[in-house]
């Protein structure tokens, strides 16, 4: 199959394919980071995670229209404001959901799963009623359009690079929050031993609420980033949910490094297989392998050693 191509063409194909894999990796990392906080640290199954991402995407869409109409001078930087706003809006909704629903269900994880699924259905219908059933896209600022010619045959789309930079930036931010801040210390303490954390004076109820809110906020930022590479529809969030959960579980819940490593291996496996097989078979094989490995090693790639 390779004999028709010259050597330089082959290099270009593999470089582009590898780069497509890297973009998919960034997307997976962005999707999984929020869930790694919520599911990995708190053990809460948030089936509405995809809908929190879509909320961020719709916030970006609204802001893009707003800047186009009223502040065209600042249009080139609207995206950064949109990301911040997406974080705040999704985080605020997350905080409300935790207060109204999740905190009553901490002892019943399976019921949380069903309740948040119900929440996801409601949010989908709200999006459909407000924004319509059709997918919407944002206007991308000029500097993000086009591609960077690396050699005369390899070109790299700028919005792809942007998403990758974002994924790295947000991963670093989450890492710093988790492992270098007082809040992160408290979250990890609660994850280790809730009763003990309570006893030494950590406000566990408040920390839980903040953790859930920050996880949802990160989801919102991820959704905002996705508008740069694709369009947004009311049910788009549901498409991500299985992949996202598998990435987090495969990496080992509670391990940020594991989440990133599993996002990398799943995305690379999928994009490499896509080169040889049809898209759906590549996905089936990747997911089957992940499920198979999880059956052999249920704790995931990087398991935290905990005494429960």
């Amino acid at each position: 199959m390779f004999s028709d191509y010259s050597m330089s063409e082959l290099t270009a194909i593999f470089a582009m394919q590898g780069f497509a894999g890297l973009i998919l990796f960034s997307v997976f990392v962005l999707m999984a980071l929020g869930l790694a906080i919520i599911f990995g640290q708190m053990g809460v199954i948030n089936m509405a995670h995809g809908e929190f991402m879509i909320l961020g995407a719709y916030v970006t869409y609204l802001l893009s229209n707003f800047f186009e109409a009223y502040l065209p001078a600042l249009f080139s930087i609207y995206f950064f404001i949109a990301m911040a706003l997406a974080f705040v809006v999704s985080g605020a909704l997350g905080m409300f959901v935790e207060w109204a629903m999740i905190r009553h269900l901490y002892k019943r994880p399976l019921d949380t799963l069903l309740a948040t699924w119900g929440l996801s259905l409601i949010l989908q219908q709200v999006y459909r009623s407000v924004f319509g059933a059709r997918e919407v896209g944002v206007t991308i600022p000029d500097w993000m359009i086009g591609s960077l010619p690396l050699t005369d045959m390899i070109e790299i789309p700028i919005n792809g690079i942007f998403v990758m930079v974002l994924a790295v930036g947000i991963s670093v931010a989450v890492y710093v929050m988790m492992y270098r801040s007082r809040w992160g210390q408290q979250v990890r303490a609660i994850n280790n031993n809730r009763v003990m954390a309570d006893a030494v004076g950590i406000n566990t109820a408040w920390t839980d609420r903040m953790t859930f809110a920050i996880g949802c906020g990160v989801a919102g930022v991820a959704g905002s980033a996705f508008t740069m590479i694709g369009s947004t529809g009311p049910t788009a969030g549901q498409l991500y949910i299985v992949d996202t959960f598998l990435v987090v579980v495969f990496g080992g819940a509670g391990s940020l490094l594991g989440t990133i490593a599993s996002a990398f291996s799943i995305s690379q496996a999928q994009s490499i297989l896509e080169f040889f097989l049809s898209g759906s078979m590549a996905k089936v094989l990747t997911l089957l392998t992940v499920v198979g490995i999880l059956m052999l090693r249920p704790q995931g790639l990087f398991a935290m050693k905990l005494r429960k």
């Binding site: 053990g43 199954i45 994880p109 399976l110 799963l113 299985v242 959960f245 598998l246 579980v249 049809s278 759906s280 078979m281 996905k283 089936v284 997911l287 089957l288 992940v290 499920v291 999880l294 059956m295 052999l296 249920p298």
Partner: peptide
């Protein structure tokens, strides 16, 4: 056998069965 022998239960079981449902759907459609 694969899951319960290794004491996988609760939410992990739920997520993995959900993934299996997704895989089978993609397979049938593909």
């Amino acid at each position: 056998v694969a899951m319960f022998r290794r004491r996988v239960g609760g939410v992990y079981f739920a997520i993995i069965t959900q993934a299996i449902a997704a895989i089978l759907t993609i397979l049938i459609i593909g």
